[in-house]
Write a protein that binds this DNA or RNA. Sequence first.
RNA 1: GGCGCUUUCGUCUAGCGGCUAGGACACAUGCCUCUCACGCAUGGAACACGGGUUCGAUUCCCGUAGGCGCUGCCA
Length: 525
Amino acid sequence: MTESNVRVRFAPSPTGPLHIGGVRTALYNYLFARQNGGKLIFRIEDTDSTRFVPGAEDYIIEAFNWLGIKFDEGVSFGGEYGPYRQSERKDIYKKYVQQLIDADKAYIAFDTPEELDKKRAEIENFQYDASTRMQMCNSLTLAKDEVEKRISEGHQYVVRFKIEPGRDVHVDDIIRGDVSINTSVLDDKVLFKSADQLPTYHLANIVDDHLMKITHVIRGEEWLPSAPLHVLLYEAFGWTDTMPRFAHLPLLLKPVGNGKLSKRDGDKLGFPVFPLEWHDPKSGDVSSGYREQGYLPQAVINFLALLGWNPGTDQEILSLDEMVKLFDLSKCSKAGARFDYVKAAWFNHQYLLKQDAMDWTPEFDKILRANGIQSTPEKEAQVVEMMKMKVIEYVDKENNKKKRNVSFVSDLWPLTKFFFVAPDVYDTEDKFVRKNWKKSENEEECTSTMMKQLLAIIEKVDDFSVDGLKAVVDAWAEESGARPWNAWRVALVGAGQGPDMYELSAFLGKEETMKRIESAISQLG
RNA sequence: GGCGCUUUCGUCUAGCGGCUAGGACACAUGCCUCUCACGCAUGGAACACGGGUUCGAUUCCCGUAGGCGCUGCCA
């Protein structure tokens, strides 16, 4: 790929963990940069000192590291256009704000937040704009020396953008086409805040994108309404010839109900909305993460990529390299996409199928330990290891061609626990148990009668191997017409799942097999 | 309320004037089978509504309705 001048950025605010919607925005930026041989820049927009959350920045970096999204420049990655943290660029913004004031494109306003609140309460739909600014307390209405006096006396002030009304501003959006808005509905946006002496998003964003030579701004749809304002700012600075192109991505919506995806939805429906687990430093709350839930990063990426974009073919499983080749901003959908976490699990299943089940053993070890399965003096490591191999063999029959219904490695435990532990109780509510373990007035028809016979036969088997068992039991079944397998399964597994009964019995051994059958007879009658 | 964006199966979407409106998830059924799962096969399921433009609209335009977003000295 040849070098190009394409430069895009992902610029989160360190106000908490990275939202999954932000991950998708970053992904699209990444795909676009890679495809065009350009650069992806990581900028931290920490201009709201009141919402700063310690640890958020590191979290975001770690999340992208896990996901495999690599940045070329930015906070912690270096580069020639730094600093990439906005709180470290205060002097730069001050200079550019002054430039706007000098050019009469912006003005100083002394109205306090309290005064503005009062105004908004008094007047319905009050807006600080061309229609009201001459009634307010600012450098447009005050004498020049009065303004200087107030500043020298330390009065707090903001800088507002002076928007001239009655003009249609056009934004040529790559995804949405021409979007236009009349400047009369815009207000004189605050560009520089008095409280923390920092610029607002709008100003910092335009100045940084310009200085960092950003060519394409790919961001969420929530920014579309302020895009015309940004165009106006580029004009005010005289930077229209290098203004980046815009692409506003559709938002991620709640799986059910109305509104955009929020942290609450994840809590309620049981799926993560953050890439990594997050421990809130203030509240102490823990939010689950895709990584900790057992998702593979490629699965998360693949799922997210297709939420709002698709290659125009039926292909759904795409590697990052394939996505880079096929990605196309103009093929992004325009409407918001509901977040279908069921399909996210399916993607994980697909990626799990691609893996060698042996790769799961570290994760599986953790699960086993959590369930009390570990090597002890009585149960040697070898034995545990053998059991694990049996599970892998069972789950991964025929080398990746047939895998059990495993969406997450953690699914292995409920799917295979019978290899390790006997059913603690037999669930008579279970459909399979009810169907295959019959009770009757007539003792002949009772399942327990048949199982007692099976028990007697098993006890006499000397060669307790699959073949040895099969020979004896098949012969008995043939002769008596008994069909013991399902009830046998009830006894050993406690449910309608698991491998062939001869295989399972041989694996468990004569003693354990008999113990479980006896236990079933006594419990189920 | 104002402004902007948006609207194809339950969900994600293909479609860029003429198609039996395609795929995937989910769901259902069947095959396989000592069970479950995998796999395979099959099935149900959509162009929000009303006007135009056109020989012809899912596709283009305008309304209406619904959805989403913005409307902070937040980003």
